[in-house]
Design a protein around this nucleic acid. Structure first.
Length: 531
DNA sequence: TAACGGAGCGCC
DNA sequence: AAAGGGCGCTCCGTTA
């Protein structure tokens, strides 16, 4: 059973169950809660516009179909990546009407200040676009997989909203102590923290002239002035230079990053009531990985993990998928030898034997195959891979070839990479053409693996969400890692749920396969204790 | 003054 | 000879 939903102003809305007329309700949350008992699939234009208000009213839903995300997936599949994919845009295309631009991004947001907001989609529009999407899904090469993709992406939208609602535990006091220890007390506006200033002074003294260590250009000039020209100011380059200014400069760069990225100002904006609430963007990365549009949740430095502490009497279950991408490749390529190795807990160790018994060599070979790496020993190791694991090798080679030739590649479930730009087509027939072709080949080579890994992770989360015992909550997700916040006495049950979810996700995507996808799940009081 | 690209580096 | 994929975020310094 599907129920089309449109949220109206003032907490009201319109509901349209399959085969029935739309009906307006004064209090949407209450009406939705009632219907949820029948476990319908909620169909709406955009989860971000409807679900947060429902969550705020205490309503949680099992499943949905997000028209905007689905439209993006379908357009991508149809080779029309990047066209407007809101429900309104989809509706307009259906009727040959002018297609409204998606409004996101700072420029578009500003424009809407002066233009009239488009009216919210109505339930009839929602139902019509949904029907059209279901038709289009039936015409892709493997509708069953694509349906799974749409379900997983939509579940991701629910989860992202729920995680935003719940927030990740974040101890402001521990954060402040950490910052003060590293940087000195919080400075008054416009000043550098004491320890940062002291390092800047040491750098100036070492070079004999003050300069702004935040400026790469000025760093280059400073090294030049002491007779030590540098090609770049990257840490690993600077590290090699023998000069008294190097140590304080590197220390400055490290601390300055913490100060500006995850310092007090950041906390003022993103942390409230002991919770860090970032804004996740489902499918924000072309490969289907999530992105964030604020808070930088996916780039929290490891030193900050000690700030993430479970509430009193609660625990954090932190689980990450081990060696996810090579396992995904093994499952997709149907490479018997690689799949057998991927049946082991340590895939790289299981692979070591053909690579001279060196686990590191096996790892480098796999990474080079998936990333298109060619430096150092990679060519030699790739030759071994080609011989011993021909199907896996051929799988990524085919993806690379498709990219080089300007064709599209797809993930296991059907997420499609963007087509090459007009600029690329120009470049590729010019003098620098081989370089452009190789770059795109590396992109598509990686896409098929990374995008399928993202699908596995999404499926894992969707299954896990359904298995979690109340009041356990997913509170963080980062590519191949999930975090659950739960009462301490539920920890064991949650760890078991993670294992089961990994198994079910594997079955959903790949069916029977010898490849295992082990999750390392640990119950900890503090995130920093998980690694 | 705002916008933008580049540099650099955090995460996977 | 060397050649790694994907992001977000902040700073700088230039340009519009």
């Amino acid at each position: 059973m599907n129920v089309a939903v449109a949220a109206g102003p003032g907490g009201g809305g319109v509901l349209r169950p399959d085969g029935q007329a739309a009906r307006a309700v004064a209090e949407l949350a209450g009406a939705v809660r009632e219907l949820e008992a029948g476990r319908p699939r909620w169909v709406w234009a955009d989860t971000r516009e409807v679900y947060p208000a429902l969550l705020a009213s205490g309503v949680r839903l099992t499943r949905c179909h997000d028209l905007t995300l689905t439209e993006g997936l379908l357009l991508g599949y149809e080779g029309r990546y990047g066209e407007p994919h809101s429900a309104r845009a989809a509706h307009a295309r259906l009727h040959g009407l002018p297609v409204p631009e998606d409004h996101h991004g700072p420029r578009a947001r500003q424009a809407t200040l002066f233009e009239e907001e488009p009216p919210p989609p109505d339930a009839d529009l929602v139902a019509e676009v949904h029907a059209d999407q279901l038709r289009r899904i039936e015409s892709v090469e493997d509708p069953g997989r694509f349906r799974l993709l749409v379900a997983a992406e939509s579940a991701g939208a629910l989860i992202a909203a729920e995680m935003g609602h719940e927030g990740m535990p974040w101890r402001e006091d521990v954060h402040d102590t950490l910052l003060t220890g590293l940087l000195g007390p919080r400075p008054v506006h416009g000043m550098r923290p004491a320890k940062l200033q002291a390092l800047a002074d040491q750098v100036a003294a070492a070079f004999g002239t003050p300069f702004n260590p935040d400026s790469p250009q000025q760093i280059v000039r400073a090294f030049k002035s002491v007779g030590l020209p540098v090609a770049s100011t990257r840490a690993h380059e600077i590290k090699k230079i023998d000069h008294p200014g190097v140590a304080p400069l590197l220390a400055y760069k490290e601390l300055a990053r913490i100060y500006s990225f995850h310092g007090w100002v950041w906390a003022d904006q993103w942390v409230r009531d002991h919770r860090f609430r970032p804004e996740y963007v489902v499918g924000g990365v072309v490969s289907g990985r999530w992105a964030t549009s604020g808070g930088g949740a996916l780039q929290i430095p490891k030193v900050m993990r000690k700030v993430v502490v479970a509430d009193e009497g609660w625990t954090l279950v932190v689980a990450d998928a081990a060696q996810l991408e090579p396992r995904v490749l093994a499952a997709m390529a149907g490479d018997g030898g690689l799949a057998r190795a991927a049946g082991q807990t340590d895939l790289y160790q299981a692979l070591a034997q053909p690579f001279g018994g060196e686990r590191d060599n096996a790892k480098l070979a796999m990474l080079s195959a998936m990333y298109g790496g060619t430096s150092g020993d990679a060519p030699k190791l790739l030759a071994v891979m080609r011989q011993r694991f021909p199907r896996a090798y051929q799988f990524v080679e085919d993806a690379a070839r498709s990219g080089e030739e300007g064709r599209l590649v797809r993930s296991w479930l059907g997420r499609t990479c963007p087509p090459p730009s007009a600029r690329w087509r120009e470049l590729v027939s010019g003098p620098e053409g081989s370089r452009a072709a190789r770059d795109r080949g590396r992109f598509t080579r990686n896409f098929v693996v990374q995008a399928t890994a993202a699908e596995w992770a999404l499926a894992l989360m969707a299954v896990l969400r359904g298995l979690l015992p109340a009041p356990a909550r997913l509170v963080f997700f980062q590519h191949d890692e999930v975090m659950v916040h739960c009462p301490a006495e539920l920890a064991e049950e949650v760890v078991a749920a993670v294992d089961r979810a990994a198994e079910e996700a594997t079955g959903l995507l790949f069916g029977p396969t010898p490849v295992r996808f082990p999750m390392q799940a640990l119950a900890v009081r503090c995130y920093a204790d998980a690694k």
